[in-house]
Design a binder for these strands. Structure first.
Lengths: 251, 251
DNA sequence: CAGAGATGTCCATATAATGGACAAAGATTT
DNA sequence: AAATCTTTGTCCATTATATGGACATCTCTG
């Protein structure tokens, strides 16, 4: 969170501000930002002016700040250039067909993962649904699957430092319980997540590994609880087949 | 393009670099960037380190730089917070149903417009298709429609300064011809664009106005040439109805 | 219309960003 | 295998840049 890289303070501040504006449920005005961010008034003005000049934010009529469309344009190219996404699409579609449920592909971003692909039925899918959504490592199938593929040192560091905040009332917030789950995942190659990230949704997750067995992302199958098949292997078998097909072949 | 806003040089540089990395067809390495951008070696290193620390870019194994997934996450919120998109969705679907053709919604970004919504058939639509794509003002239906709704001063300034580069071999590259087309659009409320932005695709565009009659975006109906209906009003009538319904009601 | 609060700008200062110059690591030649 | 060249990465003095205290202006409210 702090400014690790020397010589980039102002950039880091600007991006932090942009992120804050993006994260707000409702577009903030200057007052809000002054209170919520630790910037002095002139600094805030400058940062905002810089962001606006780059079309990264826009002002509404009533002087509120919203994310700008430049971001959407940049994101398009980011998605286009994501080779893991291209490579895995076919396999994801197959997995969706086998399980008949929604499948997601997530890759690391910051402290967690971000969904970069979603395959559901043949209905309209667009970015606003879930592509681009951030998911914490501790509360999601993809997250725990990813954790389970991390080297022991990194996992230990995560469990020590992470903020295991509850996302739903089912979220695991206890580090040792989380470790147990992760160990189970290491054993069986996948994890079952019961409503930890979204109430009413269970989910099976498994990691995609590169040729050095380091995780590069994770795949999940999400199932509405009411229609969850008793037989776990109905989901886990195709899922494992899917990630095995992808692992090693990427990067 | 130059750094207009004082006190934001380094930020502007960083974003410029990010944009350049996004724009590259193939991920650049350090060497490429050094040649293509006007940065000294140490500066480039710093900017890259800053971008990477913020997850805005990632390095591939072979030291090439690609856009990072943080962008996708931010873009999601940008789309979510776009009220024009929410407000117009219903009307766009209706327009698609009436014309049976693909419809787009575009809003200003930088020198041109960016598509922020697309409604085609009931087939899968995802961001990588066209949402997020930048379109120039002079070569597209949405662009010219937008121009036609600009105050005369702004239009004149655009025609004077703009770089009317050909996008296809049908693109209007002559300012006075462009003005004629725009005047036609002002008269009839919509514009017909014949393959100027994409070969084989014709398109009808019309602007959405706010309550002060300033353009806030534009809508287009795109038709593959081979199935273009002779009767223009087949497209223009629903299009005009659509933008009239939306204009004034936004902002 | 006075007072309080919010909004916007200036500019001296400190510090963060800059880039010339050097070092280290790889590649290529003799 | 040594020598030379090329590429890649880092240091640090310098200065231009970003910073924020202070002041000006505009906007409510009683």
């Amino acid at each position: 969170m702090a400014n690790q890289v020397p010589g980039t303070q102002s950039f880091s501040r600007s991006i932090g501000l942009l992120q804050h504006i993006c994260d707000r449920a409702t577009p903030p005005n200057l007052q809000n930002l002054l209170e919520e961010c630790a910037f002095t008034r002139p600094t805030l003005y400058r940062l905002l002016a810089g962001l606006e000049a780059e079309n990264l934010i826009t002002q509404t009529r009533d002087k509120r700040f919203k994310p700008g469309v430049r971001l959407i344009n940049m994101a398009r190219t980011a998605l286009t250039q994501s080779d893991i996404r291209d490579i895995s699409r076919e396999a994801l579609i197959k997995l969706r067909n086998q399980t008949r449920e929604t499948v997601h592909l997530a890759v690391p971003s910051g402290e967690g993962l971000v969904y970069i692909e979603k395959i559901e039925s043949l209905e309209t899918v667009r970015m606003s649904s879930t592509i681009g959504t951030f998911v914490p490592l501790h509360s999601s199938g993809v997250g725990k699957a990813y954790l389970s593929a991390l080297p022991e040192d990194d996992l230990a560091a995560f469990l020590r430092d992470a903020d295991l905040r509850p996302i739903t009332r089912f979220t695991t917030t206890d580090a040792s319980r989380l470790r147990t789950q992760i160990m189970t995942c290491r054993m069986q190659g996948f994890i079952f997540d019961n409503q930890e990230n979204e109430e009413g949704i269970a989910c099976f997750g498994a990691a995609i590994l590169d040729d050095q067995l380091r995780p590069i992302g994770a795949i999940s199958v999400s199932v509405p609880l009411f229609r969850l098949n008793e037989d776990e292997s109905h989901y886990s078998a195709p899922l494992l087949e899917c990630v095995r097909g992808l692992s090693g072949g990427i990067g």
